[in-house]
Design a protein around this nucleic acid. Structure first.
Length: 644
RNA sequence: GCCGGCGUAGCUCAGCGGUAGAGCAGCGGAUUCGUAAUCCGCAGGUCGUGGGUUCGAUCCCCACCGCCGGCUCCA
């Protein structure tokens, strides 16, 4: 067959042969001088040098992958995980191998052993890994029948591999070898272990075999690998940066929030500084919703258990709910969701088609039971406030409402500087309620809403909730990390369960469609993400303290007081630092508190009736008038205010 | 929930079988000093909780609580 490699040339390869047979020719003709790490097929699959090309087509065009390509890194890391496994097997022959894939930021291998691996083991393993890399062992692929493979791994005592072989549907399986090491693997892999120029083992932890807690626990060793040493150190720097931005650390340092052992795990206390930030967001949120025809609600935190029976939550959501409590012989339930309450608001009276859509919104605090091991700062908690809304509409209104909701999502996210999103549309799962026609309608409405807004999206087939399809948005923060916040879900179930109706133009009862949506998700989580996104340095309009007034000597305090009170009267959040400390000391403190602006006042300013401004970024604007300073503050007050 | 690690002053951390130490913060005093730490002094801890071992436990053992990392991104 004919193989054409983009940018290199065309080659003849006998059927069912691997590309490695063309190694010398490709090397010779390649203008880049460096060999491709692997190749991309037209269907987007990664093809390595080792895998025989099994195609009925007379020709195949391949895109070479070089170290700078993302896919190449996956190949390298897959090999890295084999090297890790080899090292472990050499040091701990009794270890049994699970699986060892490449992942987004590196690779891991799950390994069973009689005792957990320690940090010291990790050091030793890493040394061994580097030894294996230095030997520059070539990788070799072999195809075996399942029987042969089973015999091979039986011999090696690799129980988990035997289990995996049984799960492979094909008749043949492949193994990759390097040196004395062999692993069941479909590839792809690099040519030899020497291609791994930088590698680091990062951590060990327990992980259930196949992620199922009924299965035995293996030890998972995480690592990462690169083609270049610089890339590794850049990655390690990135990890440092992530640590510095950790919202739990910043939350403490900046006095934003606390989670207290004595109060309870996953229960957040907002400290004054954090509470200000939250309030600004909440106020803005409410205003924007009122402008857009939403009606604001407040609903209780508990309700009779029966409500949750009717809603169905007791059946399908029980494991995430706090247990019910008994009071005067009646059972009450802490609310895990707001929707049933909003439904009762809908049901206050007979609704006409003319009233729809009805949009009810609430910053509703809900309580959900999360297993202790998964709690994480503000990102995973047990009590949180959703920026929730439920829209009740007619079928013919569904699409327009969805467009509006998505527009609002984007509007809010942009406000906080999130410009990149990943959008996922989850479609009908195997088990679902409601009729197919409505599902199709909802799915196509979601889809065309996304298209209307020109939002690129991926489809997660079958990942919808049983009561309706949904759109989830993940935002990407400045460090390129994705966070799931927004969600828009169409619901056919609750209107049915609570027998919601409206009277149509035809004077008949009709069932409204319900949309659940949260823009920010939960305020706790969103603020956690925001803290990390901004590294604690909130933009001016969100900063708990916007301006700090610093005096250089006591004699200027009266002047400083006039400046400060003028700013306060304009509504700025100002703190005074009139202590008899050195200026440097005060600046340092304000800087560590990440206050956007400092106003510095000394003799000069007092005499000329001016102020000196120092921004958090270190810019100096000396001896400007207070009005000029105010102008500058106002320009930063609210980037999107009134722009809707 | 499970696995591993951790829990010492408000914070960050040192110590480790002979009942505790630093820096920062706090308090007192001195310093009035122009763009990221002025100096001196003082005070502060039932060493997560409860048991056990020991002449003696912050240190060793057990249980509990909490925190951190991880628990399919399919060979």
């Amino acid at each position: 067959m004919k193989i054409s490699v983009e940018g290199i040339g065309e080659f003849e390869l006998s059927d069912n042969s691997p590309l490695i047979l063309l190694l010398d020719k490709i090397k010779e003709l390649n203008p880049k001088k460096s060999l491709p790490v692997a190749f991309l097929t037209p269907s987007g699959e990664i093809l390595d040098w080792h895998t025989p090309i099994n195609s009925t087509a007379p020709s195949l065009s391949l895109k070479p992958l070089y170290p700078e390509d993302k896919e190449a890194l996956l190949v390298l890391r897959h090999t890295a995980s084999h090297v890790l496994a080899q090292a472990v097997k050499e040091l701990f022959p009794k270890a049994k191998l699970g699986i060892g894939p490449a992942i987004d930021e590196g690779f891991y291998y799950d390994i069973a052993y009689e005792r957990p691996f320690t940090e010291e083991d990790l050091v030793k393993i890493e040394e061994k890994v580097k030894e294996i890399i230095n030997k520059d062992l070539p990788l070799k692929r072999e195809e075996l029948s399942k029987e042969e493979a089973k015999a091979l791994f039986q011999n090696l005592n690799e129980d988990f591999k035997l289990e995996l072989i049984d799960e492979i549907p094909e008749d043949k399986v492949s193994v990759y070898r390097q040196g004395d090491f062999v692993d069941l693997c479909r590839g792809p892999h690099v040519l030899s272990t020497g291609e791994i120029k930088a590698i680091k083992l990062l951590s060990v932890s327990g992980a259930y075999w196949k992620g199922d807690e009924k299965n035995p626990m293996l030890w998972r060793i995480y690592g990462t690998a690169f083609f270049k040493e610089e890339d590794l150190s850049a990655y390690l720097n990135f990890l440092e940066e992530v640590k510095k931005r950790d919202h739990r650390r910043l939350g403490k340092e900046l006095e934003l929030f606390t989670i207290e052992e004595d109060i309870g795990p996953g229960l957040v206390i907002w400290l004054p500084k954090g509470a200000i930030v939250r309030r600004i967001i909440e106020d803005f949120w409410k205003d924007e919703h009122l402008k857009r025809g939403y009606q604001l609600l407040y609903t209780p935190h508990v309700a009779l258990l029966d409500l949750w029976k009717t809603s169905g939550h007791l059946d399908f959501y029980r494991e995430n709910m706090f247990p019910p409590m008994e009071l005067e012989n009646r059972a009450y339930q802490l609310k895990p969701m707001n929707c049933p309450f909003h439904i009762y608001v809908y049901n206050q009276k007979r609704r006409s088609y003319r009233e729809l859509p009805l949009r009810f919104c609430e910053l509703g605090t809900v309580y959900r039971f999360e297993r202790s091991g998964v709690l994480h700062g503000l990102l995973r908690v047990r009590g949180f406030t959703q920026d929730d809304a439920h829209i009740f509409c007619r079928e013919d209104q569904l699409q327009e409402e969805l467009v509006k909701v998505l527009e609002l999502v984007i509007y809010f996210l942009k406000l906080f500087g999130f410009e990149e999103y990943k959008v996922y549309l989850s479609t009908r799962p195997e088990k679902y309620v409601g009729d197919e026609r409505r599902w199709d309608l909802a799915e196509s409405s979601l889809q065309s809403a996304l298209q209307t807004l020109g939002l690129p999206y991926e489809i997660d087939p079958g990942e919808g909730v049983f009561y309706g399809p949904k759109i989830d948005l993940k935002i990407r923060d400045v460090l390129g990390r994705d966070w799931q916040c927004s969600t828009v879900q169409v619901d056919f179930n609750l209107p049915e369960r609570f027998d919601l109706v409206y009277v149509g133009e035809d004077n008949q009862f009709h069932r409204p469609i319900m949309i659940h949506r949260a823009l920010l998700g939960s305020l706790e989580r969103f603020l956690g993400v925001l803290i990390e996104h901004y590294a604690g340095a909130f933009p001016f309009w969100l900063a708990p303290v916007q301006i700090k007034v610093l005096t250089i000597k006591d004699s200027v305090i009266p002047y400083a007081e006039t400046v400060s009170s003028r700013l306060k009267s304009l509504g700025f959040r100002v703190e005074d630092d009139f202590r008899p400390e050195k200026l440097n000391y005060k600046i340092r403190q304000a800087q560590l508190e990440k206050v956007p602006y400092m106003i510095i006042l000394g003799e000069k300013e007092m005499e000329t009736g001016t102020v000196s401004l120092r921004s958090r970024k270190g810019e100096h604007l000396n001896n400007i008038t207070l009005d000029e300073a105010i102008e500058r503050f106002q320009s930063e007050a609210h980037p999107l205010f009134g722009a809707s």
